[in-house]
Simulated scan of single mutants.
Amino acid sequence: MAQHVRDLMTRNPVALTPDTPVREAARAMRDQGIGDVLVVEGDRVRGIVTDRDIVVRGLADRDDLSGCRLADVCSDRLVTATPDEDVDVAVTRMREHAVRRIAVVEGGRPVGVLSLGDAAVEKDSLSGLADISAARDNN
């Protein structure tokens, strides 16, 4: 039986506006034990920012992050899935676009995030990625 994205996704994603300071997003990631936040305008998803985006697009290019906003580091290639989509189809899309996390949207509105780790824990619980994804946060 096919498994749906809604069965594996993290619900109630942290969603912030493009003008949110990067530091605020980093704090949200730390406090929630997550590696991404969705970037939304109104009730529509505009993009996703990961902890890696903050380092590679933020810290690597700036000496001072005080003026850096999520719009400055947001991934411009948004890959999405729907809650009722087959997990294998969503994972294939992640592979095709070389992304580790995708926004889950329903009617354009964010309802969750699906990560490769989420899929690994469910699909191959004995894999190294599943072990790492299921481990407690180290912060």
Rank of each mutant, 00 (worst) to 15 (best):
A103F: 00
P13R: 06
N12D: 14
L59P: 04
E24S: 05
A119Q: 04
V73W: 11
R100G: 10
R136A: 12
P18N: 01
S127L: 03
E96T: 06
G33E: 09
D36W: 08
R93D: 09
V56R: 00
L70R: 06
D124A: 03
L70H: 05
I54D: 03
S75L: 07
R44E: 12
V111Y: 10
I102Y: 06
R93M: 00
G67I: 00
S66N: 12
A71D: 14
I48G: 01
H4T: 12
V121Q: 07
P18I: 01
A71W: 05
V40E: 03
V121W: 11
S133E: 10
V104F: 07
C68L: 15
L114D: 04
D64P: 01
V49L: 08
A120L: 07
A71V: 14
G108A: 09
A130M: 07
V14H: 11
D19G: 03
V105Y: 03
D76Y: 04
R93T: 13
G67L: 05
R101Y: 14
A90P: 01
N12C: 03
D118N: 15
V104M: 05
A28D: 08
D88Y: 02
E106V: 00
D124K: 04
R46A: 10
G128T: 06
L116P: 05
G117V: 05
S127I: 01
V89S: 13
V14E: 15
I132D: 00
M94G: 11
D131R: 15
G35P: 15
V14K: 12
S133K: 02
D118G: 10
C74H: 01
E122T: 13
V79K: 11
S133D: 09
A25S: 03
G108K: 11
G58A: 05
G58I: 06
M1A: 10
S115Y: 02
N138F: 13
G33C: 03
L116D: 01
G107K: 01
A130D: 10
Q32E: 15
A2Y: 09
V105T: 13
E106L: 10
A98H: 12
V79Y: 10
S75V: 09
R57N: 14
M1L: 11
C74F: 02
D137H: 14
R93P: 03
R52G: 07
L8Y: 11
T92C: 04
G58K: 08
M29N: 07
R93V: 07
L38Q: 10
V5A: 05
V22D: 06
D31L: 02
G42K: 02
T80P: 13
R101K: 15
V113P: 01
A130Q: 06
E85I: 11
V111K: 08
D63H: 07
V37L: 12
A135N: 09
V73A: 14
G58Q: 11
L126E: 04
I48N: 08
R95P: 02
I102S: 06
